[in-house]
Design a protein around this nucleic acid. Structure first.
Length: 288
DNA sequence: CTTAATGTTCCCCA
DNA sequence: TTGGGGAACATTAA
């Protein structure tokens, strides 16, 4: 359930239910397979993790790229601790009314001080990661909803890789994933394999706005629920109903009727309309 | 039985 | 250093 609009939706639905509450209990269930090395969803060692969380109040819930960040504090004067959660591919963060572990895929339960609600983290594939730290490291690129157009243009110029690869790179922009990279490129009318540095100012501008509009609409619709994603209240999003290209291979383009194609870029399925998304700009007086 | 899936990281090679 | 390609991680559903 991973990209920016989904995480933003979880943040918004989680906020009213947990802000101001204290965490009074931490329960973990780590599954360990004999075959492979031990993969833990909660990265912070268990004792340290409990020590960092227990008794602290949830001051705020924010999004950092695809991460959820809960800012915790003992009291106003104390130093904050951050609970960072990355949902990976199938992670769910929900508020439930039971302290019981409902399935074998629930890995973490936080008890709140209202005695009625528990925060559950479940993750079928266990690609997600949960950690507690006292400092936020910022090795990710700018947020696509905050970056200025000129800064975006300058960033693009520094990368010669294919646009699709660049948009997926969290060090370039934080928050886009496979769905929204494809949908944004379609909205901008640009082919996924165009080198980022080759974009004209005009096309870069269309991409900038294409990304923003796609993300904003997706957030309005509560994100895309393809298989696992739900918000903190367990509700599915509906933006998947508005997808123009993602997973629509062979279906007609909703704009021009051409058959949507799929190619592999950066080891990821990449969907595009061969008619609406050109490799180069077609100008009326163009010689190309 | 095979394939693909909203993600990240690591390794190899050009 | 940059970028492409692929594997690994783990589970499920088609």
């Amino acid at each position: 359930m991973p990209e920016l609009p989904e995480v933003e939706t979880v943040v918004r639905t989680l906020k009213p239910r947990v802000i101001g509450r204290r965490i009074i209990g931490v329960e973990m269930r780590e599954r360990i397979d004999g075959t492979s090395a031990r993969i833990r969803v909660v990265v912070t060692p268990p004792e340290e993790f409990k020590r960092q969380l227990c008794g602290r109040r949830i001051e705020n819930v924010e999004r950092y790229g695809k991460n959820l960040v809960l800012r915790l504090r003992q009291e106003a004067s104390a130093k904050p601790v951050f609970l960072m959660i990355h949902l990976g591919m199938t992670g769910r963060l929900t508020v439930e009314q039971t302290p019981e572990f409902p399935t074998r895929h629930t890995h973490l339960i936080l008890a709140l001080d209202d005695a009625n609600h528990w925060i559950h983290y479940s993750d079928i594939r266990r690609f997600g990661r949960v950690r507690a730290t006292d400092h936020l490291n910022s090795d990710l690129g700018p947020d696509p909803l905050e970056i200025a157009e000129e800064e975006f243009f300058q960033l693009l110029r520094s990368r010669r890789a294919m646009l699709k690869s660049v948009l997926l790179d969290q060090h370039f922009l934080r928050g886009l994933g496979n769905i929204y990279a494809d949908e944004s490129l379609f909205r901008a009318g640009i082919h996924p394999s165009v080198p980022a540095a080759c974009l004209s100012r005009d096309r870069a501008s269309r991409l900038y706005h294409g990304i923003r509009e796609t993300l904003e609409q997706a957030i309005e619709r509560g994100g895309s629920s393809i298989s696992d994603y739900v918000d903190a209240d367990g509700r599915r999003g509906s933006f998947q109903l508005l997808h123009q290209v993602y997973r629509r291979t062979g279906k007609p383009c909703l704009r021009c009727g051409s058959s949507i194609r799929k190619m592999i870029v950066a080891s990821r399925s990449t969907h595009f309309c061969p008619t609406c998304q050109r490799r180069s700009e077609r100008k009326k007086t163009s010689r190309k």
